[in-house]
């Protein structure tokens, strides 16, 4: 049909002979007008809005790209600068050194500056793994309980309460960990150091729980009721239905929540600065003081001489963190995609 269909220029209603009733037209007298409206090109503000959206999106992308470029440029001297090489090289950051004391050490301001990344990397991983190991199951179980088991009035209390956790400033959680949790843990386990990876990890899990909870709860409640009904009608119990039908169907959303939690934990700074003890040790014990990459950057960047080897190494730490976060996200995306594909047909 062309745009110049007769209905377009319609000066007066066409008289319809009574012997030929048109039931369709009769019941929808506005039908003819509607077709005309559809044909009109979209108003000008559509164009404006479209351009505005494009510009905004582009700005965000450019900003992120600039951060990458900035970090890369500031890290580069590690590979190119003679001055930096007098104190540290890429290999020295990673390999065992013949220092007195441990072969891997982070002592950037001692007489012989020591820039091993290993103790910090181990520290970050220890605390992150603890926080995800504690926070993810709690968040998921809370989501299952809230969306599937709790009666409606309880759900309406629980959901906003847990989500409120996300709004607590991390410095508050840090104080709580430092003053209260550390004491509890000390009493319960009698660790070597009062502030340690376990305390920091558990405190950190408080920030992960609402994140995992929110995403998992969303995913679980959006599983169609008909799935659950089909299972119940087959004589499955409520619990069997949750475990075998509802949770598997919500798995991509739950997995996404866990991964976001991991990313949040590895990047979190304030809580670990306050609760981890900040000693850069190389061991896998949860009961010893621990220093993370983020805490190191936060505490040392302000005092460092611009352009010095220490400065450059801190940027390399930042780049490493970024790569880690990037890699985990990539892996996670893969996992989620695979789940999705499995759910759809073959």
């Amino acid at each position: 049909m062309s745009a110049t269909s007769p209905s377009r220029n319609r000066p007066a209603p066409v008289p319809v002979p009574e012997s030929e009733p048109e039931p369709d037209r009769e019941h929808t007298p506005t039908g003819a007008f509607r077709t005309v409206e559809w044909r009109r090109s979209p108003p000008a503000w559509h164009r404006v809005a479209e351009i505005a959206i494009k510009v905004t999106a582009l700005t965000a992308i450019v900003a992120i790209a600039l951060i990458f470029v900035f970090i890369a440029l500031e890290s580069l001297p590690l590979f190119t600068s003679k001055l930096v090489h007098q104190e540290v090289t890429f290999a020295k950051m990673w390999l065992r050194q013949a220092w007195d004391g441990p072969g891997w050490a982070w002592q950037p301001t001692s007489g012989v500056p020591k820039f091993s990344i290993l103790p910090l990397l181990i520290g970050s991983l220890k605390i992150t793994v603890v926080s995800v190991a504690v926070g993810a199951p709690l968040g998921i179980l809370a989501a299952i309980f809230t969306s599937q088991i709790a009666p409606r009035w309880l759900r309406e209390i629980l959901k906003p309460t847990i989500e409120l956790l996300a709004g607590i400033p991390s410095v508050v959680i840090g104080v709580f960990a430092l003053l209260v949790m550390a004491t509890w843990f000390q009493r319960a386990f009698g660790f070597e150091h009062r502030l340690n990876a376990l305390v920091a990890g558990c405190a950190l899990s408080l920030t992960i729980i609402p994140l995992v909870f929110t995403l998992a709860e969303d995913a679980l409640s959006s599983v169609p009721k008909s799935f659950a009904d089909a299972s119940l009608a087959l004589g499955a119990t409520r619990m069997y239905t949750i475990v075998n039908v509802i949770v598997p169907a919500a798995l991509p959303g739950i997995a996404a929540g866990v991964v976001l939690g991991f990313g949040r934990a590895i990047g979190e700074t304030m809580i670990v600065v306050m609760a981890s003890g900040n000693a850069a040790l190389v061991n896998w014990s949860l009961g010893t003081s621990t220093r993370t990459i983020t805490a190191t950057i936060a505490q040392e960047m302000a005092e460092v001489v611009h352009g010095s080897p220490h400065y450059v190494v801190l940027f390399v730490l930042g780049a490493t963190l970024l790569l880690f976060a990037f890699a985990t996200n990539l892996v996670a995306q893969r996992i989620v995609d695979r789940f999705r594909r499995k759910r759809g047909g073959t």
């Binding site: 169609p224 008909s226 799935f227 009904d229 089909a230 299972s231 009608a233 039908v245 598997p248 169907a249 499995k342 759910r343 759809g344």
Partner: peptide, 8 residues
């Protein structure tokens, strides 16, 4: 049920 609902 009216609409078939196979599990994934």
């Amino acid at each position: 049920f009216q609409r078939p609902q196979p599990f994934p």
